[in-house]
Design a protein around this nucleic acid. Structure first.
Lengths: 113, 113
DNA sequence: CGCTCACTACGACGATCGTCGTACAATCGC
DNA sequence: GCGATTGTACGACGATCGTCGTAGTGAGCG
């Protein structure tokens, strides 16, 4: 009983992104790990990232990231595909994501291209 | 009754800086404002930055920033001089401070030099 | 159909956060 | 000395946070 069964997940628009919310979302080690993971594999399901917490907590963290505008979630069958909102983040806060990612894992190169 | 009456304020060493703590410190709008202010004037006292909170709260925020390693505090007479730990931040998390500052106030130029 | 899988929603819990007021300490100028 | 100024320390408060468990939804497969 839904429109298209895949597009009722709410995301903030690019213009709605708030620095405070993004920084807060990234200030948690678990969420930072999720973001780092997402940055290396193009996109993945919630379950494909192994975290030392229960599923509910996992859902919670993905929700925080989504509501801060850091990630985009798309329903795909029974699972949910997550991807970084690189373009939107770059447009509103240039360099922020790469800088934070690099600070978190100094081994990765700052600008992939 | 103190050693030198001016150097018992504890600061984390450069190596001790943690990304999570720094991001958390910067995720509060008031603290972000303090940091932005400190970035424009070389250094200033706690009272010289006008904030819509009481003195205790102000002290609290400066303490959070100091303990995260974002600012350095030095006693100077009855007041306390605050300055950004630009070099240490740059060494541990290259570009982070400038990126966040620029994201907070897009009008400022990214790299002053 | 019924079962499993992937995930969400809701309520609970202790911990931390941001705020405040009061009380206190140290320095400066009179 | 006294008082004013600048800031800290401590305790309190409500709000939010991170975590969990339980229950539920919806897609896919036998």
């Amino acid at each position: 009983m839904s429109a298209h069964a895949s597009e009722q997940i709410s995301h903030p628009s690019r213009a709605e992104l708030e620095l405070g919310a993004v920084l807060h979302a990234l200030s948690d080690p678990l969420r930072l790990k999720i973001v780092a993971e997402l940055a290396s594999c193009e996109s993945s399901t919630c379950g494909s990232i192994k975290l030392p917490v229960t599923k509910s907590t996992c859902t919670h963290h993905f929700k925080v990231l989504r509501e801060a505008g850091v990630i985009y979630q798309r329903q795909r069958g029974t699972s949910r595909l997550n991807s970084l909102r690189r373009d939107d983040l770059e447009a509103r806060f240039p360099g922020l994501l790469d800088t934070v990612l690099h600070a978190a894992h100094p081994r990765r190169k700052l600008q992939p291209a």
